[in-house]
C-alpha cells in the first residue's frame, strides 16, 4: 500500500473509507454502538490515558467491534486514573478504574464482548432500591 503523505493522497482513499463505513453500517443501527469515554484531564493524562485511548481505538477496530471512543474531563476519581466509562447498547454506563492496556484488553474481551463484569468497577452511577 502506498503511503499517505498529502491531502491529495488522502482524497484518493475516499472511496475506500466510504466502503468501509457502508460495510460497518450494514445491519447495525448507530444506537447499537459501544460508547467509551476516556477521562482525559491532567490526572488521567499524567497516568497514561493517552496510551490507553490509542490502544482502545486500535484494538476495537482490529477486533471488529463497532465502537466510538471519545474523551471526557475529570470524573473525580483521580486516585484511580486512568478511568474509562463504557456504555454498552441499552445498558447503564459502567466506570472502570486503573485501566492500563492489559486491563483495557480484559474489558474488551470480557465486558464488551460477553457482558461479563471485571474487577476495577467504580460504583459511580448505581441506584439503590430506595431511589428506584
Amino acid at each position: 500500500m502506498t503511503k499517505v503523505k498529502s491531502l491529495a493522497d488522502l482524497k484518493k482513499m475516499k472511496d475506500q473509507f466510504q466502503s468501509k463505513i457502508e460495510l460497518r453500517e450494514k445491519g447495525e443501527d448507530p444506537d447499537s454502538r459501544v460508547q467509551i469515554k476516556v477521562a482525559m484531564a491532567t490526572c488521567g493524562i499524567a497516568s497514561g490515558a493517552k496510551t490507553v485511548m490509542e490502544f482502545l481505538i486500535e484494538e476495537l477496530d482490529k477486533r471488529s467491534i463497532d465502537a466510538v471512543v471519545t474523551q471526557t474531563g475529570c470524573m473525580g476519581y483521580c486516585y484511580a486514573e486512568p478511568t474509562i466509562e463504557v456504555k454498552l447498547p441499552n445498558q447503564e454506563p459502567v466506570v472502570f478504574g486503573y485501566v492500563n492496556n492489559q486491563k483495557a484488553d480484559e474489558i474488551i474481551e470480557k465486558y464488551i464482548k460477553n457482558g461479563e463484569l471485571v474487577d476495577g468497577i467504580i460504583p459511580m452511577n448505581y441506584n439503590t432500591i430506595d431511589n428506584q
Binding site: K3, V4, K5, L7, L10, K11, M13
Partner: peptide, 22 residues
C-alpha cells in the same frame, strides 16, 4: 476534502496519523 466522512472513522484516523508523521 472527505465530504462528510467522519474524521474519527478508524481507517481515516490511521491514514491521517501516517500523513502527519511522514
Amino acid at each position: 476534502l472527505l465530504e462528510g466522512i467522519p474524521l474519527n472513522t478508524p481507517e481515516v484516523i490511521k491514514s491521517i496519523r501516517e500523513m502527519i508523521a511522514l
